[in-house]
Amino acid sequence: MALVPYEEEAAGPRQLHSPWATFHFASRTIRLQQDWRRLGVAAVVWDAAVVLCAYLEMGGIDLRDRSVIELGAGTGLLGIVVTLL
Rank of each mutant, 00 (worst) to 15 (best):
A2T: 12
A2R: 10
L3Q: 11
L3T: 10
V4F: 09
P5F: 02
Y6T: 13
E7Y: 14
E7V: 06
E8W: 05
E8A: 14
E9A: 13
A11V: 08
G12I: 00
G12F: 00
P13A: 12
R14Y: 07
R14D: 07
R14I: 05
Q15K: 09
L16M: 08
H17G: 02
P19L: 12
P19Q: 11
A21T: 01
A21D: 06
A21C: 07
A21R: 13
T22K: 13
F23Y: 14
H24L: 08
H24V: 12
H24R: 14
H24P: 00
H24D: 07
F25M: 03
F25V: 01
T29Y: 09
I30R: 14
R31F: 05
D35C: 09
D35G: 03
W36R: 03
R37L: 08
R38W: 00
L39Y: 14
A42D: 12
V44D: 02
V44F: 01
W46Q: 09
D47C: 06
A48I: 05
A48P: 07
A48K: 06
V50F: 01
V50S: 00
V50I: 10
V51S: 07
L52S: 06
L52Y: 00
C53K: 03
C53L: 01
C53D: 02
Y55M: 07
M58T: 13
G59P: 03
G59E: 06
G59Y: 09
I61G: 09
I61F: 05
L63S: 12
L63G: 09
R64Y: 03
V68Q: 03
V68A: 13
I69H: 07
I69S: 10
I69R: 12
I69F: 10
E70M: 12
G72A: 04
G72Q: 04
A73V: 04
A73P: 05
G74Q: 00
G74V: 01
T75N: 13
T75K: 10
T75M: 11
G76V: 04
L77P: 00
L77F: 05
L78F: 05
L78D: 01
G79S: 15
V81Y: 07
V81G: 01
V81N: 03
V81W: 08
V82T: 13
T83Y: 13
T83D: 15
T83S: 15
T83K: 15
L85I: 13
